[in-house]
Design a protein around this nucleic acid. Structure first.
Lengths: 149, 149
DNA sequence: CTTTTTAGTTAAGCAGGCTTAACTATATGC
DNA sequence: GCATATAGTTAAGCCTGCTTAACTAAAAAG
């Protein structure tokens, strides 16, 4: 029982630190690119999940189709997104990151990763093995959870 | 060498999933409370770091004092923040979460934690021990890194 | 073939965040 | 004690995101 409580405490502590760090980092990075957070989030979403349509964006961010269309349009105008007609359904559009758009997101991800690298740098080899194992376990569990839903 | 590459890959994969989830969760939660993301972020910051002044907010979020003052004012009006005069410097204000403000943040954190709980629920006891150990290591490393800077 | 549904766009209008500029009030340096 | 710096507020104005409403065009249903 105390085991369980302690375990819970450990995960919570870690989450608090990690979430705070990554949120801070992302909003700072987005600002440095000159993009608004909503705009940048769309780029991230596309990088994470791959090509999609305008209505997927509106669903994902819980905004109207109109709002999504306008945001997407700005990103297309700015050269971060490519909007082509879906050949299988000519009403729909297929959104894709341009090279420039992708490079923005990748750059942001790398900055986040750098923090983790700094963290890990000072660990011993055994510690690193432990961390590696644990994160692999969690990643797998997350993927399983995703599928089930 | 391949060890190192693999390790790097594992942490990256985990970070991508975790960051994506938590960002998505936070923005969704903030919206459900009726607060804007900037407003909610201020509440989070106060919960994370404790009481501070208006200019600490402007520094932290890289906005002008004027903007911070206005955001804070809205939160005070809405009853989520308490703004009192600093007795040791009567120019300065001390910002504190009200009970209602704190409860919002805590509620958000708990929703994030629930995801992690779901993740962990399906792990074996040994796996849980491994995860627990590893997260404790990372948390400690993060705290050490914070101090050094 | 007509009706209805779906995907997306456009325009008007509102609300929010942010900036600059001007201001008040307190604290600090010389 | 006076000049300067610091903490915060207020107001005007801009830009962005978002919504509703009206619209186009294509697909699906009947």
């Amino acid at each position: 029982m105390t085991e369980k409580v302690q375990f819970s405490q450990i995960t919570r502590q870690w989450m608090d630190i990690f979430m705070h760090r990554s949120m801070r980092g992302w909003s700072h990075f987005a600002k440095s690119t000159g993009l608004s957070m909503p705009q940048f989030s769309i780029l991230m979403q596309l990088h994470h999940k791959g090509a999609c349509g305008v209505s997927d964006i509106s669903e994902r961010f819980d905004i109207t189709n109109a709002a999504a269309s306008q945001l997407v349009d700005k990103l297309v105008q700015s050269g971060y997104l490519e909007r082509t007609e879906d050949p299988s359904d000519r009403r729909a559009k297929v959104l894709n990151l341009t090279d420039q758009g992708r490079s923005f997101v990748v750059q942001g991800i790398q900055e986040r990763h750098r923090w983790m690298d700094d963290l890990v740098k000072n660990l011993s080899t055994e510690e690193r093995v432990k961390v590696s194992e644990a994160l692999a376990i969690l990643t797998e569990a997350a993927q399983r959870l995703e599928e089930k839903k």
